[in-house]
Every structure is written in structure tokens, then in C-alpha cells.
Amino acid sequence: MVVRPGSFAVLLPVKSPGSGKSRLSALPDADRRRLAAAFATDAVSVCTTTPGVALVVVVSDDEAFAASLAGEGVATCADPGAGLNAALRHGAAFAHDLAPGLQPVALLADVPALTAADLAEALDHARAAGRPCFVTDADGTGTTLYTASYDAFDPRFGAGSADAHRASGALPLTGSLATLRRDVDDLAALADAVTLGVGAATAAALPATLRA
């Protein structure tokens, strides 16, 4: 595992493909598993090619799948099993032990249209703000990215997370950031992501009826 030049450690919480993306239940289980794995694969790929990202930490309850995502600049650690925010705090501590100078960035892995340009823009804005920041999802109620200094890192993902992060004093980042905001929880959101343009792994995993 190599720490590249940069200021940020991106933390990617990744469920086992067998249990991930349960809200895509309209799809056959095999398709849902392939998509869940592909979303994570594409997210890791984007992070490792984004300027400013020095380290990617995959936090997962599936050791074998996490190992398949590991590589140069990508480390893995086990999900402690106490919920998403606890997993992210654990990932932040793990990253801090590896590279204490990096700022943790919580990024949900269900953003299959994400581009390095949008991620880099968000990180640039966060760096300039110098305070906790977050990115709302396309619906405006959820959160796809949250970042703060290690000492101030306090993720509040879950129902109504945009309001929860705002109430904590975190700054909502402006700008289009369309590919970063487009999380996928259902088939309509997946179709929207396909319109934006999904990553290679997701494109290959799409059922024929959803291909652009």
C-alpha cells in the first residue's frame, strides 16, 4: 500500500455485494449483487485518479471483497458493525494511524457516475473553506460526501443527514457536482446515473434494459 501525494484520505464504506443495494430489489439478486460490486469498484477507481487524494480506505464487512478492491493507494479495514457512522469513524482512525497528516473524507460508494473532476472540485472547495463540509445528494435531503479535520470529524449519515450535517455546523458545498450528488437508491436514480454516464464496471454490470 502506497500513500500518494495529496491532502485527503477518502473513506469508502462498502457492504458485501450480497447485502448491498437492497433497495434495488426490483432487480434479480444476481444483477443487484453485480451492481453493488461495480459501484464500489468504480468509486475506488475514481478516487485513485483524483488529484489531492493520497489514500483510499475501504471499510467493509466483506473481507474477501474488500481485498479485491485493494491496490496501490488503497487500504482496507473491517467494519466494526455498529452502523455507518461508526464505520466511518473507525476508518478515519485507521487512516490516521497510516498517515496522520491526511484529512478524512467520507464518500458513499453508491455514486456510479462520479467523475474525478467533480470529486476534485469538491475537495478543492473543502480545502479552501477550512471547516467541516458536506455535499448534499441530488434530492437535497441526504449526503454523499462529508469531510472535516481528523479532530473535528463527526459524520452524521442516515435519514435527514443533510440537515444533521448542517446543524452540526458543516458547510454545504455549492456548485453543480452532478456526478457526486447522484447517489443510487432505486431504479429511477440508476437510470439518471446512466444518463450522466457511469463508470466502466457499472456499465458492464447493467442489465440490458438499463443500458443507454
Rank of each mutant, 00 (worst) to 15 (best):
A120Q: 14
C77H: 00
T209P: 00
V184M: 08
P80M: 06
E121Q: 07
D97C: 03
Y150M: 04
P13W: 12
G20A: 15
P132R: 11
D31G: 06
A99W: 01
T143N: 07
D154R: 12
G101C: 05
G175E: 14
G140R: 13
Y146Q: 03
T41M: 02
A120D: 13
A54D: 02
A178P: 02
A159S: 07
A92I: 03
P207G: 08
L84C: 08
T50A: 11
H165A: 07
A38R: 12
A67M: 03
T174R: 13
S22K: 15
G199C: 04
A138R: 15
R181C: 10
D110Y: 05
V56P: 03
D97N: 05
A38Q: 05
G52H: 03
L27C: 04
R23M: 07
A92Y: 08
A212E: 14
R34L: 13
Y150T: 05
V111R: 13
A120W: 05
G169W: 10
R166A: 14
L88A: 07
T141K: 11
C47S: 07
A37Y: 01
L196F: 04
A86S: 12
A40R: 08
G169P: 03
A117T: 10
A67C: 11
G199K: 09
V46C: 09
F8A: 12
R89M: 15
R32G: 08
A70E: 13
R23Q: 14
L196P: 00
N85G: 00
S16R: 06
L108T: 14
